[in-house]
Design a protein around this nucleic acid. Structure first.
Lengths: 343, 343
DNA sequence: TTGAAAGCGGTACCAG
DNA sequence: CTGGTACCGCTTTCAA
């Protein structure tokens, strides 16, 4: 609880004025302002002796910069989001900024609350991961956040930079992989927190079927919630069909895990009796039994990319709107195979 | 990029002085200061019309409060840490504060860097999860953070509140469970990022063996890194022993996953050929095949508790040092069983 | 009940 | 090359 050391204390100690201290601290010495090396050293020494630490709020008040960015993520339970957070954190740290984290949990109200708080905090920039696209524009407008640097992932905000991940082509690869293995009846677990999410995968799923001349059976598509529990539940519904599908595709790895679990409960061997695959390639996917075939969408890469875009925007507000697509990659592991005929 | 709306603008609009606006905004009206209801409404109306948002930095500079707390977590890959972050975030949000997240990744240097940055930010409080206990005290001293409200989890900082989780008794339960199933040779995968971590579990493991009159075989304890890969690697080493252990205990769920993976590679059935168990009960543990027996240490609860302690400290700096122990709970699932004799 | 004014700690312009 | 100083936007005491 020692009394705060201010710039004035340093100035007094070093026998210079506050301005000089400021110049030295901010490293302006040598640039627009010339400071004797000797003076510089004296200031630095005083700083060290006194243990002076600049006051961020004061600096921010004056400079207008906060050296803080904020990140809104929708969900606390899918490891994929955490990988994104990790990527964002890494870049933010490298840029010498602080990261404010807000978990909105798929609720519009919490999202709004977070945005309101952030607006007051006067963040330098904002990263929105899969937020409520529709309502958002108006919200941002109201909060006068519209002008701030924003990068989104998972949906577009007019005029803002964005990172996209089109699962479409990858889904096609995945389907071709499964169809190539001889599967003709492929279940799809569409477990999402909001309607609209995962639509790209579902769409590509149908197209792939059509392209392969396979029938599209509505009953093979199961809608459920976003948790592995829901996924297991959905998978059970698929396995109850007769004849049952010989492969199940989860809209993400969590759903695929649910399918693995359901298969295990039913005494079905994977992939002998049932092939299972997911999307994202979360860290644990490769350590499941059997290791999960999945379409990789490296979360950390996404996070890094999103953050990088934000910092570029920060340093050049005038650059044209950016749009970066993250490629996906089919990762074939042990959970998919030819399989024997059911029943 | 609209020009900033300040308190003065509101004051002018409402035809009052800045002070009055401040009183209304901070809700002081009715307390030490009396404001006519009519004036209050006029101010509120002006605020709404102008879309005025208080400037956090300015307020903070004046009031000394930042309404921000920081959280240092060691690792970005163990889902258990993320659960803790979730808990902290939830409480922080409920308190109307911002959460600054810093992932230190088990590196002392990054930890120091984070602390330095936080010291400048003048955070209201700090939560340290499993940081470098030893070096830390001196570090905090140097950064004049010593006086700030701090709550730790996973190690003690002199005089600071802390949340502890003693895995000891639970480990004993776990061992009794395994021994009760007939296992006499139980492998232990000690995969940690730093020496010292997980010592409580290892210690209880040895005590439980002794209590049961079972021999302690050094070769049954495998040291490895903290990732599931390392865990799988460690498990393979255990399975290479002859006779091999009939049960494997991982120092956390990730290690247990590695063991499940290794067992699967070897064609060993779990739990028929090998029982596997872990610690923490991460979200996914119950969805593994087979569902993992584990000692639950609910991460979200830990996070909530840690954050709650911090906010209590914030509101009453004089209260005596607090120490809260989080209970563990043995969760028996399908990955442990009697098993048949190996070979 | 309301207003004037003094800072909070830095930054950066301008004069010397 | 260095020092004086006017602000940044808000809180809070003191007077009116």
């Amino acid at each position: 609880m020692s009394i705060r050391v201010t710039q004035s204390d340093v100035a007094r100690r070093a026998g210079v004025s506050r301005a000089t201290v400021s110049y030295v601290i901010t490293g302006r010495a040598g640039g627009s302002v010339q400071i004797t090396e000797e003076t510089r050293q004296r200031v630095l020494a005083a700083v060290a002796e006194l243990g002076y630490q600049p006051h961020a709020a004061a600096r921010s008040l004056r400079s207008g910069r906060t050296d803080t960015i904020a990140l809104l993520v929708p969900d606390g339970s899918n490891p994929h989001w955490w990988a994104i957070v990790r990527g964002v954190e890494a870049v933010t740290r490298a840029q010498g900024c602080q990261l404010v984290l807000s978990i909105t949990g798929q609720e519009a109200e919490r999202e709004r609350q977070s945005l309101r708080a952030l607006a007051e905090q006067r963040i330098d920039g904002l990263i929105l991961i899969l937020t409520y696209a529709g309502r958002l524009a108006g919200e941002l407008e109201a909060l006068r956040l519209q002008g701030s640097p924003i990068v989104t992932f998972g949906h577009e905000l007019p005029g803002k930079d964005l990172v996209t991940q089109d699962y479409g082509p990858g889904t096609r690869e995945m389907m071709d992989h499964l169809i190539g293995l001889g599967h003709t009846r492929i279940g799809f677990i569409h477990g999402v927190a909001r309607t609209g999410l995962g639509a790209d995968r579902l769409f590509a799923y149908r197209r792939a079927l059509r392209a392969a001349g396979l029938p599209y059976e509505k009953q093979l598509i199961v809608q459920c919630g976003p948790n592995p529990d829901d996924g297991a539940c959905g998978a059970r519904r698929l396995l109850d069909l007769s004849p049952r599908p010989t492969a199940i595709l989860g809209v993400n790895d969590l759903m695929a895990m649910g399918a693995l679990q359901a298969a295990h409960e039913r005494g079905l061997a994977v992939p002998a009796d049932l092939s299972v695959a997911g999307f994202d390639d979360i860290d644990l996917a490769e350590h499941l039994t059997p290791p999960l075939t999945t379409l990789r969408a490296n979360g950390e890469t996404i996070g890094r990319q999103v953050a990088t875009l934000l910092f570029q925007r920060l340093s050049d507000p005038e650059r044209p709107q950016q749009r970066v697509a993250i490629p996906t990659e089919l990762v074939v592991r042990g959970s998919t195979g030819c399989g024997r005929s059911p029943n």
